[in-house]
């Protein structure tokens, strides 16, 4: 069927397309008013996100828990009648405990390095359709958070403050494809550039091709001028694979980042670094191997069997 208002419809379509192209052009030319619109929107959204975070909190990890449901089915069946209320309280308590653990570990890390940090709660994660890796925290300019500040967890580098609003801030995670940080290898002090790849594995490109890196080498942030965007000495990750392709110009390696980015609830923004560079002091202790019990079996041949 032909659509009656085709001419008018096409004219409107052209006007809308031209408007969107104008927006793209203005944004790419760095017109400030568009940034203002985005930050204004974030200021409006912030209270809704906080409220949403509080409501959604008990169900947040529901889909992950479903995969383990088979193992605990018998227990769930037994306790189903009377544990609904207790379970909800337990989930809240678990969530609080996890946050407390994260907070303790990050304060421990900051204390050893002499950093002044501000703890903040993660209130929103970026939509997957944007292909970027970001989170929003509930601290902003009113708490002293400014763009290009380092964000850490107890395990190591989380990312960097990309935008700060009055009561919230947008954090670009170290997994973001746009993320780059100068790093050095603890011990050898060899330097390189680490780039995010959209997952927990990042890519390291070494600047010096002469020295050899090996699996298990620990990477620390090299630090920036005036400690922005990166403070020195923060643990970043550990080398999990080395690319030894013959004839390559620069040596590259795959790095497993330390933090668990899928379970972020509390992070810390480094407001100011200490006077002294912590050097290799923040290198995490290697995991202790769990002792495996040795079972020794003594077999004594029975006298009756030997006589047969």
């Amino acid at each position: 069927m032909r659509y009656g208002g085709e001419g008018r419809s096409r004219l409107l379509l052209i006007i809308l397309i031209v408007t969107s192209l104008l927006l793209i052009t203005l944004d790419l030319r760095g017109v400030k008013i568009l940034d203002g619109v985005r930050s204004g929107t974030q200021n409006v959204l912030s209270p809704f996100q906080k409220a949403g975070s509080a409501v959604v909190s008990p169900f947040r990890n529901f889909f992950g828990d479903v995969t383990n449901l088979g193992q605990t089915r018998s227990e769930i069946e037994k306790l189903k009648a009377d544990n609904a209320k207790l379970r909800n309280q337990l989930l809240q308590r678990k969530s609080a405990d996890a946050e407390l653990d994260q907070l303790k570990s990050v304060l421990d890390l900051a204390g050893r390095a002499g950093y002044k940090v501000l703890a903040a709660r993660v209130i929103s994660q970026g939509a997957s359709t944007s292909f970027s890796q970001t989170v929003t925290i509930d601290a902003g300019t009113s708490s002293g958070v400014r763009p290009n500040m380092t964000v850490v967890s107890g395990e190591g580098l989380i990312g960097v403050v990309k935008e700060s609003y009055s009561n919230s801030a947008l954090i670009m995670l170290a997994t973001d494809p746009d993320f780059k940080v100068g790093v050095r290898i603890a011990g050898t002090q060899q330097i390189g550039i680490l780039s995010g790849r959209g997952s927990k594995r990042a890519e390291l490109q070494l600047l010096d091709n002469q020295q050899v890196v090996k699996v298990g080498d620990v990477l620390l942030a090299r630090g920036s001028t005036n400690n922005r965007p990166f403070v020195p000495g923060i643990p970043v990750g550990v080398i999990s694979a080395v690319d030894n392709t013959a004839g390559s110009i620069a040596q590259t390696a795959t790095v497993m980042l330390y933090p668990n980015f899928s379970a972020l609830s509390v992070v810390s923004v480094v407001l100011s670094a200490g006077k002294n560079n912590p050097g290799d002091a923040l290198v995490p202790a290697p995991p202790r191997p769990t002792p495996v019990p040795t079972v020794t079996i003594y077999a004594t041949p029975s006298p009756s069997a030997s006589t047969k």
Binding site: L22, I24, D27, R38, T41
Partner: peptide
């Protein structure tokens, strides 16, 4: 307008139109 949008302002507008 979403803070998690990585593209330029107007990018999603154009595609969604």
């Amino acid at each position: 307008l979403s803070q998690s949008s990585s593209g330029a302002m107007g990018h999603w507008t154009l595609l969604m139109i």
